[in-house]
């Protein structure tokens, strides 16, 4: 079984949702990073990342969001984080990321962030 899987779907005409499952760590982060860079290259800069099924995140995983949010925002987009587990939230808190990222608990809240 793979340590992490990614699924991309359209949440609206201009917003993509990336569903991540498993471990987001030093072994898997590049897969998500490449996925985001690929979306940016297609002009898709409004991203919701569904973290409900991410069981574990390390700084390498969080680094994907830290390194890419500026790129999304500079192009008029954003990265919104949906439904992180308590463990994942704790890592964001340790890194001081809750001030920088918008964390939401439903898809409709996520959509509202782009209105």
């Amino acid at each position: 079984m793979s340590d992490m899987t990614i699924e991309i779907n359209a949440l609206s005409d201009s917003i993509e949702i990336i569903k991540v499952e498993g471990y987001l760590d030093a072994h898997t982060f590049e897969q998500l990073d490449n996925c985001m860079l690929d979306l940016f290259s297609k002009g898709k800069v409004r991203l919701v990342v569904d973290l409900a099924d991410v069981d574990y995140i390390s700084s390498a995983g969080a680094g994907v969001f830290i390194g890419n949010i500026g790129r999304a925002q500079d192009s008029g987009g954003n990265i919104v984080l949906l439904n992180p587990s308590e463990n994942v939230k704790e890592v964001f808190e340790l890194l001081g990321l809750t001030q920088i990222f918008t964390l939401v608990s439903t898809k409709s809240e996520a959509l509202n962030q782009f209105n």
């Binding site: 390390s58 830290i66 390194g67 890194l95």
Partner: peptide, 20 residues
Amino acid sequence: DVNMEDHVRNRRKGGLGIFM
């Protein structure tokens, strides 16, 4: 130590492990 705002501004993805 890490200044997170600088990290975001410079689009840095790594260098957070020791801070953690």
